[in-house]
Structures are given as structure tokens and as C-alpha cells.
Amino acid sequence: MTGNLKTLVWVEHDGTAVKDATLAAVTAASRLGEVHLLVAGQGVDGVAQAAAKIAGVGKVHVADDAAYAHALAENVAPLVVELMGHHDAFVAPSTTTGKNVAPRVAALLDVMQISDILSVESDDTFTRPIYAGNAIATVQSSDAKKVITVRGTAFDKAATEGGSGVVEAVASQGDTGKSRFVGAEIAENARPELTSAKIIVSGGRALGSGEQFHALIDPLADKLGAGVGASRAAVDAGYAPNDYQVGQTGKIVAPEVYIAVGISGAIQHLAGMKDSKVIVAINKDEDAPIFQVADIGLVGDLFKIVPELTGKL
């Protein structure tokens, strides 16, 4: 199905490369109709060139200005609103940037946003998870323009080659002065990003300390070439940084294999990983809820099991 809408897709990037989350948003947008992209940032020529090669892309709008360097919503939203003068739908990936920018755009356009869609049923009807994914709602929008965020795990990634989009510069709307970037602590991580990792090893409260978390989870992840995740309890306790959190209010992941180590399986955690292809659970409590969703369960003490597993793989 391909509709007749002209869509504008937010390109998530790190200044040099297009992030994977963008590719799922492009696929969702292509169901609605023609796909145009917006690359906003500073010194983003390379990103724009790469974006133009994404399969199925028509036009790439590039706003290159210091005001967009950190994708501050206060500065970016007026730019999107301007471009929405000649687009029918704004589509953003459900990244923290997408979630920050899109609702502001929606309010400025007087539109009710459709958050975190799982499917496009028609050009005004979508499915989306509610109650931590314990229910799936089908919603129909009566707004003339649509503002949508897209759950990355629910759509295939568009191919990064094969497109021949036309790159077009757009004028900056300038700095609104309503926000200022102060700094960032972005973890340098040699491991695969959680949202695109094929295998994830996640640790829970049971790891007991940051040292033990690293001593047990990291070697297993390295053996498997896996990304590392964590439960909220493990993050709250400081065993792992906040960007490791998987769940309703953290990252949504769907790898080929998800290995939950010392995680009980609260609904808020399951919400973030239950679409994984294969779930492996290691827990000493044979009644832990995680075993209700696990394909392979091993009951026992993780402090014995994990080192043995790492050694034998």
C-alpha cells in the first residue's frame, strides 16, 4: 500500500552518519506516500549526501546552521513547521530527539500526535501500543496534517543505497534563545547500539554492584558480539548508565537473541524486549515472570552460570 501524502521524515544523525532509527521511519513514511527528508544540524553535508542515497527518498531538505547543531526542539520546531507548509505528514523515529521535537511541532500545527506507531493501516489509521504494550490500539486521526513517531522495531529498515534524492538547502529560522546546549556525556561504546544489536545481554538488580555487572555481563557480551542492556533497577542502583535501560520508559529492542540475567520480568521491562526473536533467561527463582516469555530458561545462580557460560561459548 502506498498513499498520496507528502511526508517529511526527521533524519536522526550524529553529525557524520544517518542513524538506523531513521531507516525504519522512512519505511513507515513510504506507506503514506512520497518521502522527503529533513537533515538539520551544523556541517551536515556528509549526512545529507548519505541520506539522499536511502532507497525511495525524493527530496532531502538540509538546514545547516549553528542553531541546529544540537537539535534543540525550541529551534528545530519552527523549521519543521515552516516545511510543513508543503507537506502532509511529519514522521520522526521514536528516539529521544524525535520524542522531544515532534509533540512541539504537533502543538504548533494544532495536531494531535500519534505516538510510537506499530503499523500504518491507511493514511489516517495506525496501530500503537498502550499500557506498556499490554494492549494495542487502532486509532484514526481526523487532523488534516499528521504528526507521527515510529517505533523502530516495528518496521523494516529502508536500504541505505539505491536512492537518488535531490538535496536542497533550506533557510535557517535562527536561534529562538529559548534553550542553550551546555554539554553532553555521551558514552563512547565499542559495542553495538542497543536498538540495532543482533544479540543483547541484559543485567538486573541481582548483579549486586557495578563491578560485578561489568565483571560478569561484559565478557559474555564480548564473546557474543552483543550489546549490553539493563533493567531499571540495575540503572537506578548505578550498576549501569541510563542509556542501557530497556523497557516501557527506556529503550525498545527486538534483537535476534535477548539474554536476561537476574531480571525478574516486570511488565515495564517486558514492554521493552518481548518482541525479541529468542529470549533466554537466567534466574534463580523458577517462578520469576521472565520465564513466562522466555524460550530458553535456566534456573540457577547467575554468579556460577554466567562465568561458566562465557567460558564454554
Binding site: 494492549a135 490500539a137 487502532t138 516469555v293
Partner: peptide, 27 residues
């Protein structure tokens, strides 16, 4: 409301899988 809820359903359920006896079987 601008959004009309047409229906709400339960998500597909995952079947509980198997338990393995030890690390060797898991490997």
C-alpha cells in the same frame, strides 16, 4: 478528540518455552 480509537486488542502472546538443566545444554 482528534484521534478516534477504533479498537483495542491484546498483543500476540508469547508461549513459554523450555527450561534447560545446565549450562552445557544451554550452550
Amino acid at each position: 478528540p482528534r484521534l478516534k480509537t477504533l479498537k483495542v486488542v491484546e498483543p500476540g502472546k508469547r508461549q513459554a518455552g523450555i527450561k534447560v538443566a545446565d549450562v552445557d545444554e544451554l550452550v
